[in-house]
Structure formats: C-alpha cells, structure tokens
C-alpha cells in the first residue's frame, strides 16, 4: 500500500511537471487526495522558486583557478621533457634546495602568467583562451537587463578587436573568425540594446565602432589581397553601422528640448551647450 502511494505520488509529480493542475491530477486518486494535495502544493512551490545564482566574480575566480590547475597538471604530465631537461640542468637539480626554489619560482611564474593571460592577453590557440571565452559566456548569462547585456556584448566585441590586433602582430595573419566574431558581437549589442537606448550607450557604441574602423584601416595595408577584400567589407559594415548610430543619436537629440543656436560669439560663450552627446563639439 505504502509503495503504491509513493508510486502514485511520483506519477502525480510527473503530471504536474507536464503542466497538469493539482485538482485535475488528484481527480484520478480521490482516496489519496487529502494526503497528496499538501505535498503536491509543496512540490509546486519548490519548483517555482528562483534558481540560486552565483556571482560573476565567483565564476571567473573558479575558472581562473582551473586555468592554473590545467597548466600545472599539463606541466606535471610530460615526463619525457622533464627527463631531457634533467640531463641539461642535471647539476642544478642535484641540489634539492635549489630545485625546490626553482620549482616554487616556476609555479609562481606559471600562476602569474595564467592569471594575466586569462584576464587580458590570451588569443585563439592559447591554452587559456577557451577559459576566457567561457568566463565571458558565464558573465553574460549572469548579467541582468538588456542594457547590461548589450554593454557586455560591446565589451566582447572590443576584446575581439584587441585579439585581432594581437594575432596580426604575432603571426602577421588576419584571423577571419575573430573578425566575424567582432562584427557579430557588435551586431548582437545593437540587437540586445533596449528600445529606449540611452544616449550614453549610443555614444559608447559609436566610440567602439569608430575604434574598430580605425583598427581595420590601420592594418589594411598589411594584409594580402584576398584578406584586403574581407577587411574592406568589414570597414563597410562599420561605416554603415556608424551612419545608423549617428542617425539614432540625432533622433535622441531631437527628442531633447532644443535651443535656438546662439548667433553671436558672446551668446555662444554663454549658451548652455552640452558637454557630451550628439551635437556637442567633439562629436562633429
């Protein structure tokens, strides 16, 4: 009997998960209604609870810790290399104290390199690059609100620009994947941005777009003809996007209370010209 009830209860939970209502489900088991109803209500309340969420900082810290651990495990894993090294540096490693000091120093360097690489310098092909991308992904998932998400997209797009630059400096090659990712993240930033996008966000978007265009133009002469076409196309996208952003900024500005343009130099000096945003001097 007890086992039957436990099975019935489990089936009821299954039906509840499939969208059934408690009343309807229990119509099938009127003899158990009084016993099962409060339990199913508790189940429903538990399943409606918001999922506990970790902070983005904690996730990043965990991933950085993992990066260090992988580097450590990988370095401990190559005995052949160790043996060869031991023969080269054999005399040093015959002294335990020196070996210990060097190992600690090596571990510290490894840790430092790990953290700094993850935080800023890793590019595709680096050991820690996937962790960097995972950190970005998780921080995006944890971000709340469309404006914050759009800002993060923008940051990722800027990151990809920096990575393109770094890859180009390192290998002299244009990474087409990164270029696409850069444009895609900027596009997603536009799509994620809320309908009532703030002037501040538009200004930021414009600044990143201009920066990306400048970067692309700066390395156009350094790429081969096939890649030049790709770069030109990307610059075209930036141009188009820039025009769109400026149009949005003008609209934003038009909605603000307007002032008659000051006629005289004296008036101009005393006019309340905005310090930033569309229409201010530095934006022209």
């Amino acid at each position: 009997m007890g086992k039957d009830l436990e099975k019935i209860f489990d089936d009821c939970i299954g039906e509840l998960r499939n969208g059934g209502s408690i009343e309807l489900i229990l119509q099938k088991y009127p003899e158990h209604k009084s016993e099962l109803k409060p339990l199913l209500e508790l189940v429903q309340a538990m399943e409606q609870l918001p999922k506990p969420e970790p902070t983005a900082g904690a996730v990043s810290a965990a991933l950085i810790g993992l990066g260090e651990e992988i580097a450590h495990l990988r370095s401990a894993e190559s005995p052949k290399i160790k043996k060869r090294r031991r023969s080269v540096f054999g005399r040093f490693f015959q002294q335990p104290r020196l070996a210990w000091t060097l190992s600690v120093a090596f571990a510290l360097v490894l840790m430092f390199v790990g953290i700094s690489t993850v935080s800023a310098n890793s590019v595709p092909g680096d050991i820690l690059y996937p962790l960097k991308l995972a950190t970005e992904k998780v921080s995006f998932l944890l971000a709340f609100g469309s404006e914050r998400k759009a800002e993060l997209r923008l940051t990722f797009s800027e990151q990809r620009t920096k990575e393109i630059k770094r890859v180009l400096q390192k290998s002299g090659k244009l990474d087409e994947g990164l270029l696409n990712a850069m444009l895609k993240e900027a596009q997603l930033a536009l799509e994620e941005s809320p309908n009532d996008t703030s002037a501040f966000f538009l200004a930021k978007l414009n600044a990143v777009n201009t920066y990306q265009k400048d970067v692309l133009e700066s390395f156009r002469p350094r790429v081969d003809s096939a890649n030049e076409k790709i770069v030109n196309r990307a610059i075209g996208v930036c141009d188009m996007r820039g025009r769109w952003i400026k149009g949005m900024m003008r609209e934003e500005w038009d909605e603000m209370p307007t002032h008659r343009p000051p006629a005289t130099h004296q008036e101009r000096r005393h006019s309340q010209k905005p310090q930033w945003g569309p229409g201010c001097d530095w934006m022209r």
Partner: peptide, 24 residues
C-alpha cells in the same frame, strides 16, 4: 587529456548545477 576547451565546457556545464546543489 586536460584539453582546456573541454574542461572549460565541462565547468560551464557543472558550475550552475553544483552551485544549486551546494547552495541549499
């Protein structure tokens, strides 16, 4: 094989689950 990409993916998969479990 300590493939960083795989470990990153695995952590991304496990972290929220484990966190929910430990949180309570």
């Amino acid at each position: 094989h300590f493939e960083p990409k795989a470990i990153a993916k695995l952590s991304e998969y496990c972290y929220p689950k484990v966190f929910g479990y430990i949180y309570y």
